[in-house]
Design a protein around this nucleic acid. Structure first.
Lengths: 170, 170, 170, 170
DNA sequence: TATGAATGAGCATTCATTCAT
DNA sequence: CATGAATGAATGCTCATTCAT
């Protein structure tokens, strides 16, 4: 596997497993079985690595989007498997973004894209509601990293049920 | 003002304004106009400071809880003013908690308490739903630190509207 | 018990149990159940405490000296019980003495006194030999703190046997 | 000269000249004219540097051992020139070993080896006696750092004389 | 006497980054 | 492409000492 890809994969893994504070260049390089100097060779800086990871990762995610789900169950499973871990990664990027202006910009742009995608997935076209649903998914992702016993799956089912029928209300 | 309080206030301010990665002992002490050695004098360690801040802060928040709101508008205003900034603080603690086991424990406990409180505030007694609403608020708080233009207020109104009437659905 | 004495006892205990590098003022004060500020109140400085301890300790030791032993066994027991632990304390003082000129002076003086005392104890009047016997005892004390299985007692018996009859040689 | 070697030499020099309490990483690095970060680059930690120094130093010493001496004078000169300074280094390691468990282990092992070597050098095969002679040499080394006027050379001659003929006694 | 707040220097260690090879 | 030596700033933390109370 190419060195670039090894580093990007290791960076993602490190952020998710150890958190942003432990994601040093040397730690990531060690996880990738790669010399630490190559981070600068390929990405210019630590921030460069993370910006690239963010772009690549969320571009892929946005392209990957399946159009139709045969059932609500399938949709929930997709969100649980795809969106929740990605939201966790996002949370780590957010922590880093205070020190990394380029990452901060990229983050804001991708947050909007993800919000649109989640809205499309769940059939929501109102802005505030879309933000709300995205926020809920991100929040659940974050909470599950604080308290692993959190009933993320149940909450997602409830989230879907409620938003599906929210227009019937009132 | 007592030095302890100065440090606790500065720690909160620093986390919210500069993020967990910038919240070094010396930075916090400088913001508090206090000698950095006093952090160890009063709290034993950096983790000690944060654990104390977390406890104090959320104990106060939980006590502070108003019983009844005259209107939905008031409830929304309360959540916007109180819960959202506190949720932001929580997000910073979460980033730190990977390196700070005591903080991690404290965090999990307080997350449950906050979830119960938010459930009570919004009249929700189902566990999964309670988690969902809390997660949504935390997610909104986090997003607003990524994209300040995020319509947090509108989303909260929508959140409240939907959950108030969710039982009418189906 | 008077605070002074408590501190002196704790200082000795700390040096012997934890070594000179761990013998901080706060650690000693904690072991004495005494406020750390009192070290400066009574002894002026950390060095002052150690100088006083050294003086008091070895003055007492030198006064304590029993004149006659009924048997060689008794003499050996005395050396093992009294001289060896004191030699260990001496070793810790030596480590500190590099940073503490007053302690260094006091140390040199007491080393001579101890050498004389040990010489008297063992019936040795030659300077070089006296130094040699003292050095052997100090070395055994030090080695026993490196390797607790060291046969200190046996070596002391041998030491005594040899030096008692050294004049018969040649 | 290679940086590693510079650091090892400086560490030895620093321990012997300034004592274990002054042997900080920055002081050692300054003495070696080397960036302090390189201590961790090469040895992982301060303890790592000292463990390496101990191993290297005493392995070399043990290999270096000359088989036969033409006269007692030569043997005495060898002990004075080789063993005494090394024993001094050992004394400094002992002071550090309370805080450094790996160094403590290494120390105990090397003490046994040195004891065997000294025993061989002086033709002593009894365990307790071997310990005694080694302890005497270590004690003399330590005393000479307390009181430079100590007649180390004379004591060594006496040590040799006595132990050479100890079997004639009784 | 006794307390504990306060200070500033120093400690080992980590880190992103640079760069010669 | 790849390596690892080198750098200097920053990190959390410990310490002896001072001093107001």
């Amino acid at each position: 596997m190419a060195t670039r890809i090894k580093l990007l994969k290791a960076a993602r893994e490190c952020l998710l497993e150890k958190g942003s504070h432990a994601a040093s260049i040397k730690t990531i390089a060690k996880m990738a079985n790669v010399n630490h100097g190559l981070v600068h060779h390929y990405f210019g800086s630590k921030q460069g690595l993370f910006v690239e990871l963010l772009r690549l990762h969320f571009d892929t995610l946005l392209l990957d989007q399946p159009k139709d789900f045969e059932s609500d169950k399938e949709l929930n499973a997709y969100v649980l498997k795809k969106m929740v871990p990605n939201a966790r990664l996002f949370v780590e990027f957010r922590a880093l973004s205070y020190q990394m202006p380029d990452l901060a910009k990229e983050l804001a742009g991708n947050l909007r894209k993800l919000t649109m995608m989640i809205g499309a997935l769940m059939g929501i076209d109102d802005g505030a509601t879309r933000s709300l649903v995205t926020a809920a998914i991100f929040g659940l992702a974050m909470h599950s990293s604080i308290d692993p016993l959190m009933p993320v799956s149940d909450s997602l089912v409830e989230l879907h049920r409620i938003f599906k029928h929210r227009n019937l209300v009132e």
